[in-house]
């Protein structure tokens, strides 16, 4: 199958084929392309970013490492269901090992409008 490598802006068009039980990547300009191609057909992963509503605003969050793509919506639901704390700071872990992965969910931004006089 064909796919576009997303590792850098070069956007190589990769051809990933199974030949004699081995995965062969072609069309890549660098080794990262091969790595991506194999990963993508064997165990595709994504960094997931999302938003959680908190009192008076939202926090933005992400996974610390890429997680298996098939867990995408389980992770989003876990973010929704995570208990709401009193305060949040950038970098706080709100879920450890989300959905059994080795990734944590961390706070990337806090959006609470200041109370105006």
């Amino acid at each position: 199958m064909e796919m576009i490598c997303i590792r850098c802006p070069n956007s190589c068009v990769l051809k990933v084929e199974k030949k004699k039980g081995k995965i062969v990547v072609s069309g890549n300009l660098c080794p990262r392309g091969e790595e991506y191609g194999i990963q993508e057909v064997t165990d595709p992963r994504r960094t997931i970013t999302s938003v959680k509503q908190i009192k008076g605003g939202t926090i933005s969050v992400r996974t610390t490492v890429a997680v298996q793509k098939k867990l995408y919506f389980d992770v989003l639901k876990a973010i929704k269901d995570a208990p709401i704390k009193k305060t949040y700071n950038v970098g706080d872990i709100i879920i450890k090992n989300v959905c059994g992965t080795s990734s944590n969910i961390i706070v990337t931004g806090v959006n609470i409008l200041p109370k105006n006089k």
Partner: peptide, 10 residues
């Protein structure tokens, strides 16, 4: 690093 927008700003 691959950061999100708010982290890059931070």
């Amino acid at each position: 690093e691959e950061l999100s927008g708010p982290e890059y700003a931070y």
